[in-house]
Amino acid sequence: MRKTKGGKLGLFILMKGIRMTTLLIAICFISFLLVKNSPIDPIQAYIGADMLKVGPEQREKIAEYWGLDQPVIVQFLNWGSAVLKGDLGTSMIFRRPVIDVISERFLNSLVLMVAAWVLSGVIGFIMGVIAAMKKGTWIDRIIKWYCFTLASTPTFWMGLLVLIVFAVWLGWFPIGLGVPAGVLSENVTMMDRIQHLILPVLTLSILGVANVALHTRQKLIDVLTSDYVLFARARGEQGFVLFWRHGLRNIALPAITLQFAAFSELFGGAVLAEQVFSYPGLGQATIEAGLRGDVPLLLGLVIFSAIFVFVGNLFADLSYHILDPRMREVRKL
């Protein structure tokens, strides 16, 4: 029994692995083609302001050295085989290996995204539960209104508002960046980092709650009108006990799944929020790489973000398999 269970899960992960590989190949190919056909000239992006000092022969030499004179498919394969060996190339704007830039930036972003993910999940879930339990009252209407408004609010705009109110008017928090300016890196304290993190996290969390809250509200309303809640009430259960025994159990799973599936939105939101707050994370790096024609970094980030979102969705699928008895026990039978 144990063995078949492990086998099924192994098969599930294998299938997901195959799907991820094919997805990554497709994404790499498409992004490579897009960058190739974009107006970015890699040589110009590399040389920058010194372009005037470089003659046509030198340009041709560089192109030849980089293999730019070869057919697109050969270029793609060259790049692809380097990526497979773990070499994503060197970032042109940072003059460092892409993999180093991404890992450093990712740590910054990870703190931001995890904090926003947990906060928005917990707050959104609680809001949804309150709205459903008090359905039709003023508190439900306020929560619904808030969620609908936020669901249609762009992240960067919310970021600007938060910045104006809390950093400029009230002066409670620093205006931007990940650490205070003009301080040696060894003198930066944990407190400084947290202070710089609060506003971006706040922006992302305020926006992130809408989805979870509205879904949780609807799901709980469905649960409360279900036959099994009617029967639980017929057995004398009511109020909080009823919610705890039957409500929570049945709405937690969809909420967790939804929150994992929201990884992509989180990533997209982080890109914009980091730009507004000049926070040195992955998102900001993506925008700079795009604007300044840093092809290796841009492609590296595309691959990385695809993996990130894929892993989020994988967790969402896995959570169902592991937590829902209807999926779990079927495997045992």
Binding site: Y228, L230, F231
Partner: peptide, 17 residues
């Protein structure tokens, strides 16, 4: 549930989880 008990119609009346 204390003095009056209900025996409902179908399995849908049991909490699925």
């Amino acid at each position: 549930g204390k003095e009056i008990a209900l025996v409902p119609q179908s399995v849908n009346y049991l909490d699925p989880l």
